[in-house]
Design a protein around this nucleic acid. Structure first.
Lengths: 120, 120
DNA sequence: TACTTATATCAATGAGTCTTGAAGTATTGA
DNA sequence: TCAATACTTCAAGACTCATTGATATAAGTA
């Protein structure tokens, strides 16, 4: 994850519709959702509007697509999200590990690591 | 950290100058840096341009300021950064803990937690 | 082939953002 | 009080972004 990629990802995530799409696709898991289904889940989203935001997200590397019959299925690129977090934290931590510990505690409660515990 | 705050933070971080300012201030630590010193560290930054971006970052909650004599000292709000990470990961992990583990491993190598270890 | 469904692309419009230079405010010192 | 320093605020222009509606492409179906 380089600065340009991070800037693109932050820009993609700074738009309400796109942030919601990403969250929706993350919860949808690896199977993903068709563009139409995503559009139906969003408020008053025209097909061109969805296409605009989905291609924006795809170019930012946050989602990927595959065709299934007439539909195009979008899914979240989970490694891009974790890479973004890694980039953010890498920059945060230079000499100040206290920044990371609250975030690690939050992750710990979210992800239930299989071994070990985190103390701030 | 709510959606609106996250959107504001992502928008603030999606601009090259502002992302660099944040990284600069994170490395500068709690003492922070004056607006002028930040401007000197950036390429060809006019004072009004710095002020524009610094107030943008401050409104997003990513930096804070205090006056010292004639100078205004800016410093990074580390809890806002970790809060943003927490927000991102919280949304990432719904049913998919495998997203978080690589990020946790990255944080682990960055922050050297005082106790326990993280396994993906 | 013609029709329907599903999505993408294009062009135009309006809204928002970034930069610049000038003017304004706050602090310090003579 | 005057001048200098350090920032901020304001206004204007250029640029970018989001939305809309129309058109285009691609894949099934009759």
């Amino acid at each position: 994850m380089h600065e340009k990629q991070a800037l693109g990802a932050f820009a993609a995530l700074s738009q309400e519709t796109r942030l919601r799409i990403v969250r929706l696709l993350v919860t949808a898991g690896p199977e993903g959702m068709s563009a139409g289904a995503i559009g139906e889940a969003m408020d008053s989203a025209s097909s061109s509007r969805m296409s605009f935001h989905l291609s924006h997200l795809e170019q930012a590397g946050l989602v990927e697509s595959r065709r299934e019959g007439r539909s195009i299925i979008y899914s979240a690129v989970l490694t891009a999200l974790s890479g973004l977090v890694e980039f953010l934290m890498r920059d945060c931590c230079q000499g100040h590990p206290e920044v990371c510990h609250p975030a690690m505690a939050a992750l710990s409660s979210c992800c239930e690591p299989t071994k070990g515990s985190i103390r701030g």
